[in-house]
């Protein structure tokens, strides 16, 4: 019997994860109560307008991309076998990371769409380092981002090249580091690391071998729908926190230090994390700093870090990785972006 993908993943959580599951449920309930209380108590305050409009705007813009990513992930799950993936990727881990960091060139996806795709790829046993390199590099090293950056910077191609090259190098470097520091089992959530056939769909593996196209399509949509339900909530929570950050933290608070390169790089990285902009839109916001004391290195830090790591992505990563992995991933990415931009400021600019 071909069982759909909507349902059964949670019932298979092991006993060891019951406690964290309970904590997670409590956190989600608290989140819901807080959000609903804000509507009830502060609906007519200007701060609520800023929060609500920012939150809703991010979700409205991101959901179509996430749905697309979920659909791509569903099709990867059903139509691309583990054997095919291992045939396509280079055997050596270093090379597979290097190839994956640049895959966005042929598979352009934004940061919201890429999370469900990467989750599916990991379930298909794509090496962890390669998956991380694609996760971080895909939303930057792609033609759409190159085009939007070129337009935003009035076809100053050097900015485009800097952004794509740094994006690629940092994604590959973090991917390699993750390969060294973690095994799949230690890095991933159990439902991402585990064998899909056992955890997810029961009899899917054997059924998919012989299923006809129609059944496979229904299965792919089932997987996509499940991913939307599962990852979508992380996106919602992330967008809400981003809305709060935009509401509570005035940008003027950073103004004094924005002209000092080593501080302005940090501040612009903080802004990238807090603002949660789409990787196709962030160049326009970065370009608005062009005729200000904010140096180009800081503008680049904003454009390189944002698609790799912002509040909404950090929370979405919870659907794929363990918390410790996310901490290491975030630490590595932030440090590498900071150091590379600092070096650029000193050596190149």
């Amino acid at each position: 019997m071909n069982r759909p993908a909507f349902n059964s993943v949670y019932s298979n959580q092991g006993h060891n994860h019951q406690k964290s599951g309970r904590n997670s449920r409590i956190a989600q309930i608290l989140f819901l109560l807080t959000a609903v209380s804000l509507i009830a108590l502060y609906r007519n305050r200007p701060q609520f307008s800023t929060l609500g409009i920012t939150f809703v705007s991010i979700v409205l813009e991101a959901f179509p991309f996430m749905l697309f990513g979920a659909m791509m992930g569903g099709f990867v799950e059903v139509f691309v076998s583990k054997e095919k993936i291992s045939r396509w990727l280079p055997k050596q881990r270093v090379w597979s990371v290097c190839v994956a960091a640049g895959l966005g060139v042929v598979f352009p996806v934004c940061e919201c769409a890429i999370v469900p795709v990467v989750r599916r790829l990991l379930k298909k046993k794509v090496p962890l380092g390669a998956a991380v390199a694609f996760l971080l590099g895909g939303p930057i090293v792609n033609p759409l981002v190159a085009a939007s950056t070129a337009v935003a910077y009035y076809f100053d191609w050097s900015v485009v090249v800097y952004r794509l090259v740094f994006g690629y190098l940092i994604a590959a470097a973090v991917g390699l580091c993750v390969t060294v520091f973690f095994t799949e089992k230690k890095a991933l959530r159990p439902d991402t690391a585990g064998d899909d056939s056992a955890l997810y769909d029961g009899d899917f593996q054997e059924s998919s071998q012989s299923a006809d196209l129609k059944t496979k399509l229904v299965q792919a949509v089932g997987h996509a729908a499940h991913d939307f339900l599962d990852i979508g909530r992380f996106l919602v929570v992330g967008a809400f926190v981003a809305g709060l950050a935009q509401t509570l933290v005035p940008r003027q608070a950073f103004a004094v230090v924005l002209s000092v390169p080593f501080l302005s790089i940090l501040i612009m990285m903080g802004l990238a994390i807090a603002l949660n902009l789409c990787s196709e839109a962030d160049a326009f916001v970065a370009a608005s700093f062009r005729f200000t004391p904010v140096p180009l290195s800081a503008q680049l830090a904003f454009m390189v870090l944002g698609p790799m790591l912002d509040i909404k992505l950090l929370i979405m990563y919870l659907s794929v990785f363990r918390k410790r992995t996310i901490l290491v991933l975030a630490g590595l990415t932030v440090s590498m972006v900071y150091l590379s931009m600092l070096m650029m400021e000193v050596i190149v600019l």
Partner: peptide
Amino acid sequence: IRSAILLLPLLFLWSIYGQSLGTHA
């Protein structure tokens, strides 16, 4: 819980429609 979280933006959408970014923003 999952469904409530996914429906939350809609609650905000219908609460916020009509308001806009102003002096605070």
